[in-house]
Design a protein around this nucleic acid. Sequence first.
DNA 1: TTGTATGCGTTATCAC
DNA 2: GTGATAACGCATACAA
Lengths: 358, 358
Amino acid sequence: MSTINDVAKLAGVSAMTVSRVINNSGYIGRETRSRVEAAIAELAYVPNAVGRQLRSKRTKMLALVLSDIMNPFFTTIARGVEDVARAQGFSVMFCNTDESEAEEARYLLMLVQRQVDGVLLVPASTSGKSLRLLSSHHMPVVVIDRRIQSRQIDSVRSDSEAGAYTLTQHLIGLGHRRIAVLTGRRSVSTSIDRVAGYCRAMLDAGIELDDNLVRYGEYNYGEYNQVDGNRMAREVLAADPRPTAIFAANNFIAFGAMRSLRDAGFRVPEDVSIVAFDDLPVAWLSDPFMTVVDQPAYEIGRRAAELLLSRLDGTISGPGREVVLPSELIVRRSSGAPAGQSVMNPGSTAEAVSLSLA
Amino acid sequence: MSTINDVAKLAGVSAMTVSRVINNSGYIGRETRSRVEAAIAELAYVPNAVGRQLRSKRTKMLALVLSDIMNPFFTTIARGVEDVARAQGFSVMFCNTDESEAEEARYLLMLVQRQVDGVLLVPASTSGKSLRLLSSHHMPVVVIDRRIQSRQIDSVRSDSEAGAYTLTQHLIGLGHRRIAVLTGRRSVSTSIDRVAGYCRAMLDAGIELDDNLVRYGEYNYGEYNQVDGNRMAREVLAADPRPTAIFAANNFIAFGAMRSLRDAGFRVPEDVSIVAFDDLPVAWLSDPFMTVVDQPAYEIGRRAAELLLSRLDGTISGPGREVVLPSELIVRRSSGAPAGQSVMNPGSTAEAVSLSLA
DNA sequence: TTGTATGCGTTATCAC
DNA sequence: GTGATAACGCATACAA
C-alpha cells in the first residue's frame, strides 16, 4: 500500500505538505493542494492510523468492558456508547468478562498495551482492584452500572436502591406483605442496592423483614441467572406462609422464577405477582407482560461515553463525578392484588402505566 | 509511561535484549533474563502495542461490521466471533451500519486506516461494492449471514432457502393452504431466499402462489421491522380469502405481526398460525411460544472468525469458501391446524419438537 | 507557503 | 548471548 511518501513523490512535494493537506493544518497553496489531492486520488492513498497513533500518542479508540454483550441491557448501553463515540471520531472495542475478575484483568492489561484513549468499565467486583492498573498508567475510566469502593472516579448508573424501593412499594400498595426478593451475587453493587431498596420499602411500610424471603444468587450473567432464579423461586415458595409476590432483581432471574411458578402450577398474577428490574427492548416484546423498573440503558451508555470524552478533551476536569439516572416504573399484568385483598392500585389494566422516578 | 529503553537502561542491557525477553525469542543468559525481568517489574513496564504494530504491520485486531448490535441474532454471532478471536490473541471492533451503505463505506475506510488484520462483514447490500475497497487494500474479509454477488469470497451463513422451505412445509403439513409470507427489504439476500424457499414449498405441494400474500418490508433492522411487520400483517389479513397462517421472515416482523393479530382479535394459533425465522436466546424466553427456524448464530460467528483467522495465518488459501450451516425447526404453540382441518402434524404439544435440517 | 530533521516504541538484520 | 543500526508511517518543531 502506498504511503505518504509515495504521494509526496508523485505530487512533487514533501511528505509534510501532504500531511498538511490531509489534516487541513497550516497554509497550503491552492495549486499545491490540488496536485496533492490528485496524487492521493491516483494512488488511492489511505493514511495509516498506526503511524499516526504512534506519533500523536492518541489512538481514538475507546474500550467498553462488560460482563456479556448478549445481555440486552448491556447491548443497549453499548449502542449508546458507540453512537457518541462515532460522532466524535472514536471507535469502540468490546470486551466480555463474563463477570470474571481474571478475565477483566487480562483485558485491561491488553487495553493498556493497545493504548486505548479511555475505558468504560462494568467492574466484575466492587473492590476496584482492576482500576489501579488503569490509574497507574493514567488511563481515564468511567465506571458503568455499578458502584465501586474508590470514590474518586467517574461513574454513571441508574439508582438501583430507588428503583427497588419503588418496585417493592408498588407491590405493597397492591396489598402484598409477604414479598420475596431474588437478587444476584453479593459481590455486585446492584444486587446489594436492590435488596437495600426492598428492605427500606418494607420497613417504611411497617412490614417485618423475613430472611427466608431474601435470596442472593451465585451468578451475574447470561442464562445462568435464569437457573439461579428458578432455584431461588422454588426455595422461597417453600416458605410458610408462602410469599404472594416475588421481586426479581433482573430479567434473567425473573424468567427463571416465572418458570418455577409455572412448573409449580401458580398463576401470575392471580396466585403470585412478579416484578423485575430491567425491561426488554421494546422490539422484543410481542406481548409486554412483566411489571418492571426500566433503566435508561441507552442513556447510561451515552452519558458515560460523553463523560469520558469530556475528560479526554479536557472539557471536564477535577474530581470524579457520579451520575445517577432515574429509572421508570412500568406497571403491566404480572403484578396484581394478592388473593383475598382489596385492590389499592390495580396493576392489571390494559394500558401500561408509566411513572418516572426522581 | 516507561518504554523498552527505560527497562534496558535500568537492567543495564540493550533494548534488543529486553525485546527478546518479552517475546521469548533468541537465546538469553539466565542471569540477564532475571535482571531484565526485575527491571520490567520495577517499572511496571507494559509493551506498547502501537509501536509493535507499526513495526510488524499487524494489529491483531479484527472488525465485525453488522447492521445493529442490539439484534440478538447478531449479538450471538458477535459472541462467537469474540470467543474465537480472543483465544488467538485478537481483539474485535464492532461497527453498526444500521443497514446503510454509506455508513458501511465510512466504517470500512476507517478500518483500512486502522490497519485491522481482517473484517467480518454483514453487507448492507448484495452489490458487494464495499468489498472492492477492502480487496484493493488486500484486506481479508469473510461475509456473514448474506449472499453477495462476487463469488470469490469467503462467506458463512445458514441456509435461508431451506429453512423457509421447512417452515412453510410445516404449515402445509398442518393443513394450511393460504399462507402469507412477510419478509424484509428486497435488497437483502436473506429476504429473497426466504421467499424463494416459501415459493418452492408451496409449488411442491401443488399450491398456487398468490402475490397478495407475499410482502417485502422496507427496513431490515431493529424495531422498524416491527412496524413493518405490523403493517404487512394488516395488509395480508385483508385479502379474501384471508390467510390462515403467516410466515414472518424474522423475529421483529413476527412481533409486529403478532400485535396486528391481537389488535384485530385473532387468536393464535386457533384463528391464525404464525411461524418465524430466528429464535430468541433461550435466556429470554420465560414461555417459549413461537414456532421458529433457529439459525446457529453462535456457530456462524465462530466459523466465520475461524475461517478469517485461517486465512490470516495461511492455514487456508485458494478460492473463497462458502460455508452454509443447517438450521433447526422448533415447533411450539404458535402453529396449529387451521380451523375445520384435520391435524396432520400437531404443533401444539406441550414439549417443543426439534428437527434438524440437513 | 513549503521543507528538513527528528523521534514516537518496537523489532529485523547483521555484527560481534 | 548480546548490541548497534535502521526502519515501520506519520507529525511536531523549527527553518527557510
